[in-house]
């Protein structure tokens, strides 16, 4: 897909912003249900990284998949086991199923995706395929 803002050199993050705008528009969200998990996106020459704070989940309960250029994070946070006699004083945390799709600036293959979970912070690094990397063109002398 062509992202017009990417051609503007003065705004290197324009492409990323327009991508996330695109993706979020297609995800149906209830007005009373906020987007979860919130993500930070990091960009470099050889890779893109997505970090998300998902505390209180076992890494095995998270599913990460990449299809073409869409990265999907889904899973379920389970509420803690408590006896029936427990009384709630305060309940700010949220539990349940979640899913989030993020469009990447390139189509990634599975072997180039690496995910790690540290202290409730998920970090996914997606390597840029070699064929997508800019090639330097040698200028031959006439």
């Amino acid at each position: 897909m062509y992202y017009p803002t990417y051609t503007r050199r003065s705004d290197p993050f324009g492409m990323m912003r327009s991508m996330l705008r695109d993706v979020n528009r297609f995800i149906p969200t209830n007005s009373d249900q906020s987007v979860f998990p919130v993500v930070n996106v990091w960009q470099g020459d050889d890779a893109v990284a997505v970090t998300a704070e998902i505390p209180g989940i076992d890494p095995s309960d998270i599913d990460i998949s990449v299809k073409d250029n869409v990265l999907t994070i889904s899973g379920e946070r389970k509420a803690p086991d408590l006896p029936d006699t427990a009384r709630w004083h305060r309940n700010e945390r949220r539990f349940g199923k979640f899913t989030r799709a993020i469009r990447l600036p390139f189509a990634a293959s599975d072997e180039k995706v690496e995910a790690r979970m540290t202290a409730g912070v998920l970090r996914i690094v997606v390597g840029r395929p070699d064929e997508d990397k800019p090639r330097k063109i040698e200028i031959k002398a006439a």
């Binding site: 408590l82 006896p83 427990a86 009384r87 305060r90 700010e92 912070v121």
Partner: peptide, 22 residues
């Protein structure tokens, strides 16, 4: 941090979400 506080017969339990903290 987002916090849940639950009281049981044994006492009080607090659960605080602190992602990134070891």
């Amino acid at each position: 941090p987002l916090t849940d506080i639950v009281e049981t017969d044994e006492g009080v339990t607090l659960m605080l979400e602190m992602p990134g903290v070891s």
